[in-house]
Design a protein around this nucleic acid. Structure first.
Lengths: 230, 230
DNA sequence: GCAGAGGCAATTGCATGCACTTTTTGCCTT
DNA sequence: AAGGCAAAAAGTGCATGCAATTGCCTCTGC
């Protein structure tokens, strides 16, 4: 290899590739269907093809990329039907997390959730979409952790990341911010009073609404797919 | 490479390795904590280290093996806590599948489920454990499919396979066969009358009981781990 | 006798090379 | 001019080789 591995953080080269490529997929920088050329990727990141290949294999196991034997890899393309199934699953998973959270969160976790949630109200007033999105992620992560079930946590995070590209622009919809906050409020309130059934229902409804909001963007099938890797 | 790839079926070599190693883990032939030596595995399957490495990477992404950078891979070792979380998740996932199945199964799917279920009664009478276990797998698979949600299906199958090593001997427990059948019967009945709530509850309870039965075997921490790969 | 340092064997991580498959391009035929 | 075929180009799949890291063993010093 020429010089020091400049960009990206530490870990083995393969891990770096998984993160680098995975991030680009999750953030929507690489679009579904886009071709992932081993040689180009290797050149782009200044490594040999071997770690790139391994990374693609792992991403394929995670469902983020699709591998066609002898025909290269592409960013996983999801059908409308599969997308719907993922959103529905997400709703159920979040419902479980919320339900468990209502039953199991420690008092300090409850406090943290409440505080963060109240703080986010400010973002709504200011219409600070980016900031709110950050809070939003935090909020949901708290629910996943609060469930005190590592496996559910993993499944949920995984599903969430696969949905990420399709949820990207949801807060652009007018009034979505305030509505989101109100939905969060229902969840928080239910969790606070330990009402697991209500918490589950509120969380499920929340995701369902996000799902519908996202469908708008999912259906506007965007331009022909072809962009440079870097 | 020396000759034709003899054993195992088709696909790329990496896929074969994933299946071969994954199967050995899922079936309990390779035990949690067991070291997975790249060179030995490569020699065992008569391939080079490259596909073995890739396979280990993918299995690691699936959670079946654990990779310690520069220190080799081992069969994923699950703590009691993580095991419990997986069983709990499994109960919830099965509950979802049963609930959706009650709502969505086509009449032909319902018919198939009922017929298969009734047929399995015979296995119980005969005490045919192996046969029943096969029917059992079929039964649950029908539930996963009946949910008509590919993502939930995938999550459930994945979780199930990770639990497989720990459920192996559950039917050895005396009377477990008959009890299992009765639990299935509750699920089937609920699905047949479209009672999604009852179906979900019955499925959750079913898994919970399996979980307890399995705990017996999970806790008897077995002999020191060291066995030949082949 | 034990703790720590140094060196050696074993194993992993990555790069490179070659064979095979797929895709493209250009020519020929109709 | 369009279709089809063939050869070449591109790209994937796997094997092999080498550098680097780890773990172990020994040897030394206390």
């Amino acid at each position: 290899m020429s010089g020091k591995r400049s960009l990206i953080r530490s870990g083995t080269t393969v891990d770096q590739m998984v993160r680098a490529i995975g991030d680009r997929i999750v953030t929507g920088y690489l679009r579904p269907g886009e071709k992932l050329d081993e040689t180009s990727l290797a050149a782009r990141f200044d490594v040999s093809r071997t770690p790139v290949r391994e990374a693609l294999g792992q991403l394929s196991a995670m469902g983020l990329v699709e591998r066609r034997p002898n025909r290269g890899a592409i960013v996983a393309v999801v059908t409308q039907e599969h997308l719907a199934s993922m959103f529905e699953s997400m709703a159920e998973l979040e419902a479980i997390c919320a339900r468990f959270s209502a039953e199991r969160m420690t008092s300090s976790e409850r406090r943290g959730l409440e505080i963060e949630h109240q703080a986010s109200a400010r973002m709504v007033q200011l219409g600070a979409e980016e900031d709110y999105e950050y809070f939003n992620t935090e909020f949901h992560t708290r629910l996943y952790r609060g469930a005190h079930n590592t496996h559910i946590h993993d499944l949920t995070v995984m599903t969430r990341s696969r949905l990420a590209p399709f949820r990207r622009a949801q807060f652009m919809l007018p009034g979505r911010l305030a509505k989101s906050w109100q939905e969060h409020d229902l969840i928080v309130t239910a969790i606070m009073r330990g009402d697991s059934v209500a918490a589950g229902k509120a969380a499920r409804d929340h995701v369902s609404i996000v799902s519908e909001a996202s469908a708008v963007f999912a259906t506007d099938d965007r331009k022909p797919i072809r962009r440079d890797v870097a």
